[in-house]
């Protein structure tokens, strides 16, 4: 599969929990990402969903090199990002950029828009010669639908949606093939959200970009993604094409998650399968044995406590699902 641009294998990130101030001793670990495999093809969007704290942002930071994995590998175009060093690593990093959630805090308020978007050129001076940078930044502003004459303005002079466009322009500066978007539209109003989603889709077509698109809004993820990975407590528990995940989910957690999402159509009221989960997500420092979802799962048996279900295609799950008893149940449409 030569069109795979990104492949992660056995990705793990544990944050040590320490005690003591002077002599810190390690007393445990937050298992934020705990064995994730994924791949991304050229021009494709992989959506990543899951509840707060399940490890989405940590996964994103690992993929773009902002965190170092505890173990595992990340291949971008055949190069192992975890083992690369120095100039070779810097060059490879150009290929994978990130857009962050909060358009209000992720941009430095004291830098002009031109400096913000042009900053990657200073870190990677070989990409655009010095005298061409202003032009390049103006082209980028134009590409994301902002006025190129506003190059000397500051972030506070822009609205939330416009700031998110600035973040996208900056991510595009080094002409990456892959962009990791961590909740890129979550802070925006619906009318502005649609503008940014359409922009991301247009840029993807124009430049053949591949996206990892992280969000907790499952409707937005369905709209933009070709494939989806559902995370729970640091692991991917189900993955497949958007149709498989939304119309034929087989993992109880995916089913519970989807059933909780309200659909903007009052005629469906009371006509969808409702699954109300009890209790809270367990601490990622001390996940349950066997299946991590078993403390909240209505189907759990002794087997679930003893044996960890692997993420794989199963007799009753045509796409990979990490449940011993995986089985299709539609919770999204009219019963």
């Amino acid at each position: 599969m030569s069109d795979v641009v990104l492949e992660a294998k056995g990705l793990v990130k544990h944050f040590p929990i320490t005690q003591g101030i002077v002599f810190k001793s390690k007393v445990g670990a937050v298992r934020a990402v705990d064995g994730v495999d994924l791949h991304l093809r050229r021009g494709e969007t992989l959506g990543v969903v899951g509840e707060s704290g399940c490890g989405k942002s940590t996964l994103a930071k690992l993929l773009v090199g902002l965190e170092t994995p505890t173990s595992g590998s990340i291949n971008v175009r055949g190069e192992d990002m975890v083992r690369l060093k120095g100039a070779a690593l810097r060059r490879a990093r150009r290929n994978i950029q990130m857009v962050l959630q909060d358009p209000y805090t992720s941009l430095n308020p004291r830098m002009t828009v031109g400096d913000i978007i042009g900053e990657p050129f200073q870190i990677h001076p070989e990409v655009v010669p010095k005298n061409g940078r202003q032009r390049a930044v103006q082209d980028l502003l134009d590409t994301v639908g902002l006025n190129p004459d506003h190059i000397n303005r500051y972030p506070h002079q822009f609205s939330g949606g416009q700031r998110q466009r600035i973040g996208i322009a900056r991510a595009l500066a080094l002409k990456p093939e892959i962009i990791v978007c961590d909740e890129p539209v979550s802070a925006l109003d619906v009318s502005i959200q649609a503008q940014v989603i359409n922009l991301l889709e247009r840029l993807q077509n124009e430049f053949g970009l591949s996206y990892i698109f992280i969000a907790h809004d499952l409707s937005v993820v369905r709209h933009i993604s070709d494939r989806v990975a559902v995370m729970y407590l640091g692991k991917v528990i189900e993955t497949g094409h958007d149709h498989a995940i939304y119309d034929q989910p087989t993992h109880p957690y995916t089913q519970a998650l989807l059933s909780a999402v309200p659909v903007p159509d009052p005629r469906l009221r009371g006509h969808r399968d409702q699954i109300v989960l009890e209790g809270d997500v367990p601490s990622p420092a001390n996940p349950p044995s066997g299946c991590r979802f078993r403390t909240r799962c209505w189907k759990a048996t002794q087997l679930c406590a003893e044996q960890e279900p692997l993420l794989q295609v199963r007799e009753r799950s045509p796409h990979p699902s990490a449940c011993h008893y995986a089985e299709i149940r539609d919770v999204v449409h009219r019963r």
């Binding site: 609205s159 619906v190 009318s191 359409n198 409707s219 709209h223 958007d242 659909v263």
Partner: peptide, 24 residues
């Protein structure tokens, strides 16, 4: 009307979202 047309749906894979131009 424009708000209703600009939201993505959970229960179907929609077409391109229609947008409300400009800002409040």
């Amino acid at each position: 009307r424009a708000l209703l047309e600009s939201i993505p749906r959970l229960d179907m894979k929609g077409q391109q979202l229609s947008v409300i131009r400009g800002l409040p």
